[in-house]
Design a protein around this nucleic acid. Sequence first.
DNA 1: CATCCTTTCTTGACTCGTTCAAGAAAATGC
DNA 2: GCATTTTCTTGAACGAGTCAAGAAAGGATG
Lengths: 145, 145
Amino acid sequence: MPSDALLEQSLRDAALRVTRPRLAVLAAVHAHPHAETDVLIEAARGAVGEVSHQAVYDVLRALTNAGLVRRIQPSNSVARYEARVGDNHHHVVCRGCGSIADVDCAVGETPCLTATDDHGFVIDEAEVIYWGRCPACTAGSPASS
Amino acid sequence: MPSDALLEQSLRDAALRVTRPRLAVLAAVHAHPHAETDVLIEAARGAVGEVSHQAVYDVLRALTNAGLVRRIQPSNSVARYEARVGDNHHHVVCRGCGSIADVDCAVGETPCLTATDDHGFVIDEAEVIYWGRCPACTAGSPASS
DNA sequence: CATCCTTTCTTGACTCGTTCAAGAAAATGC
DNA sequence: GCATTTTCTTGAACGAGTCAAGAAAGGATG
C-alpha cells in the first residue's frame, strides 16, 4: 500500500485538492480492496476521526471520476471500490457470500474483448464478471465471508 | 414473441402455477427486452388490468429463479430483465443513456471465457458487459434514449 | 503571511427501488 | 367440489444513495 505522501501526490496529479477525508478514503480503498461504502466510511473514521458519510460518497465519486479508484457493482450487491486501476483486470464473484477476487485480463488491453456485433456502439471497455462459488462456500458454508 | 399458449406451457414446464399476472409479466419481458421493472409493471397492467407492483416483483423473482427470464443490472442502473435465456449472450451498455443491446457470445458456451487464475472459485458463468456509447449518444445527444 | 475565491465538508432531510409482513384470493391435486 | 398450498393485495418499511444550504478548509495571489 502506497505511503501517505504518494497518495497525496496522486491526488495532486489528478488536480484534486488534498484534504484529510480524501487521503483517508483513498487509503481505505487501498487497504480494503472491493470494500463496500460503509466499510470505507468506518475505515476513514478510524484514520481521521469523524467524517460524514456524505463526504465519503463525494470523495468516492471524485476519486472515481479522476480514475484513482474504480467502482464495481455486481448484481445484487451495493457499490464496491478498488484502487487497482489502469490494467483492466476482471473479477470473480461468489454467488454464495458475494466475496470478490481479482482475475487478470485475458488479453491485457482495454477493451480486452471484441464484440462480434457492436450495434454501432463505440466501445471503450469490456467488463467481465465470472460468477461462481468461492472455496469456502463450495466447501459447504453457503453464506459466510 | 411466443404465443400465450407457449408462455403458459413454459410456466408449467418450470413447475410454476399459471396465473394472469405471471402470463402478463412474462409476455411483457418478451415484448420489452432489457426493460426496467416499472416498464414491466405498466405493460402487465395494460394486459390484465390492475396488478400490484409487489406481485410483479414476486413474479420476476420466480421467473428468474426458474430460468425463464434473466436479470441484468449494469452499474448505475436499476434491475432489468430479458427473456432471451440459455445462450449466454452478452450486452453493450451505453454510458450516455443506459440503453442496452445484445451481443452474441464470442465462443458460445457457458462459461465462454476462462479465467487465468480462478483463486479456487468454481466458476459457472462469465458475464461480459461492453461499455461505450450508442449511435445516438455518439452523435451528440448525451442523454436521450 | 493575509486575503479572497473556490471547492469541499457537515448536517439533515429526502428519494426511490426494492423488500417485509399479514391476510385474502386463486390455482392445483385428489 | 374441497382442501392445501402458493400467489396476490395492501400497506408499511428499509437502506443505499442523493439533494440542498450553509460552514469550513484548500490554495492561488500579492
